[in-house]
Design a protein around this nucleic acid. Structure first.
Length: 272
DNA sequence: TGACCCCTGGCC
DNA sequence: GGCCAGGGGTCA
C-alpha cells in the first residue's frame, strides 16, 4: 500500500537495478494487473532504461527505442530484484536482465497496474495528466493548496486523497499531515485561512520527507508487515495517547476509509 | 457523496 | 467466520 515515499523508493530501486544492464526478456502473466493494456507489448520490451520518473504514486519507465510502461503499485504492488531461477510469490510480471537478475512485479491483490506505452507518450496518458500537484516535484505552498482546494466543500481528509488535487497522498499521509498541522479532518477543504494553508503545506512535505528518510532499504517495509513498528504519529493509533497533547487518538470512517485524528489538538466537529 | 467492486491475506 | 487493509474506479 504504497504512498508517495514508497513509490519514490521503488523508482530509485528500479533505476539502480537497471543501471549498466539491459532487459533481455520480459514476461507478463495473465493477471488483472494488465487490465485495459496490451500485455504483449510488455513482453516485447528489450534493452536499456532511458529514464525513470514518478508523478504522485505513478511510476513511468522509459527504455531505449521509445519503449516504456506505466506502473502503479496499487495497495500491495512491489518491484523486487531476485537472482535468475529464484521464485517470487505473487510475481505477476518479470523483466529478465543481462546481469543474471530478474525484476519481479509482485502483487498479491492485483490492485496495481502495468500499462505499456511508448516512452514519449507516458507523460500524456490521461491517468498521468489527471494528477495534481506533486509535493516533491512541484512547488507545494499555501498558494498552490489554495488553488487546488479553493472552492471545495469536501472534508479536508477526503479532499487530500483526491489525486487530481495533490498527487501522492494516501490514507496514512493525509492523516499524518492533518495531525502535524493541527487541522480537523472534517473541516471543509476550501475554507482554510492563509496561515492554515501554510501549515498544511509544510506538514504535507514534512510527513513525506520523514517517511522518505526512513525508507532506505532495497525492499520497502510496509507498516502492515509483521514486526514492523508503527512509525506514525496518529495513523493506526486508535485508542492510544496523542504524542502531542496526551489526548486520545480516534478513528472514524470517512469517505469509506479510516481516518485517525486527535480531537483535542485537531478541533473541529464532524458535520452531518 | 456514499455504496460497492476489484483481490488476497492477516488478525481477532 | 468476520473484519480489516495504506490503491483506484464506477454507479446512482
Amino acid at each position: 500500500m504504497p504512498e508517495l515515499p514508497e513509490v519514490e523508493i521503488a523508482r530509485r530501486n528500479l533505476e539502480h537495478w537497471l543501471q549498466g544492464t539491459a532487459v533481455t526478456a520480459a514476461q507478463a502473466d495473465r493477471t488483472r494487473v494488465f487490465r485495459g493494456a496490451d500485455r504483449s507489448a510488455f513482453e516485447r520490451l528489450r534493452g536499456r532504461l532511458a529514464f525513470s520518473r514518478r508523478r504522485g504514486k505513478t511510476l513511468l519507465l522509459g527504455f531505449e527505442g521509445n519503449q516504456g510502461f506505466l506502473s502503479h503499485l496499487g495497495m500491495t504492488g512491489k518491484w523486487v530484484c531476485r537472482a535468475a531461477g529464484q521464485g517470487e510469490p505473487y510475481s505477476r510480471a518479470r523483466l529478465v536482465l543481462a546481469n543474471g537478475t530478474v525484476l519481479h512485479y509482485r502483487d498479491p491483490r492485483q490492485f496495481g497496474r502495468i500499462h505499456p506505452a511508448p516512452a514519449d507518450a507516458l507523460e500524456h496518458l490521461p491517468d498521468v495528466r489527471r494528477l495534481g500537484v506533486d509535493p516533491l516535484l512541484d512547488r507545494l505552498d499555501a498558494r498552490a493548496l489554495k488553488a487546488v482546494f479553493g472552492t471545495s466543500r469536501a472534508p479536508l481528509k477526503v479532499a487530500l486523497l483526491d489525486q487530481a488535487r495533490v498527487a501522492g497522498l494516501g490514507n496514512i499521509h493525509a492523516a499524518e499531515a492533518l495531525w502535524r498541522s493541527k487541522l480537523s479532518p472534517f473541516r471543509p477543504a476550501g475554507a482554510l485561512t492563509d496561515a492554515e494553508w501554510r501549515r498544511l503545506a509544510t506538514a504535507i512535505k514534512a510527513s513525506i520527507r520523514f517517511a522518505l528518510s526512513r525508507e532506505t532499504d532495497e525492499e520497502i517495509a510496509y507498516v502492515e508487515e509483521p514486526g514492523t513498528p508503527n512509525p506514525f504519529r496518529v495513523y493506526g493509533r486508535a485508542g492510544k495517547r496523542c504524542f502531542r497533547c496526551r489526548g486520545t487518538v480516534h478513528r472514524v470512517r470517512q469517505g469509506g476509509r479510516s481516518t485517525y485524528f486527535c480531537p483535542r489538538c485537531q478541533p473541529g466537529r464532524r458535520k452531518s
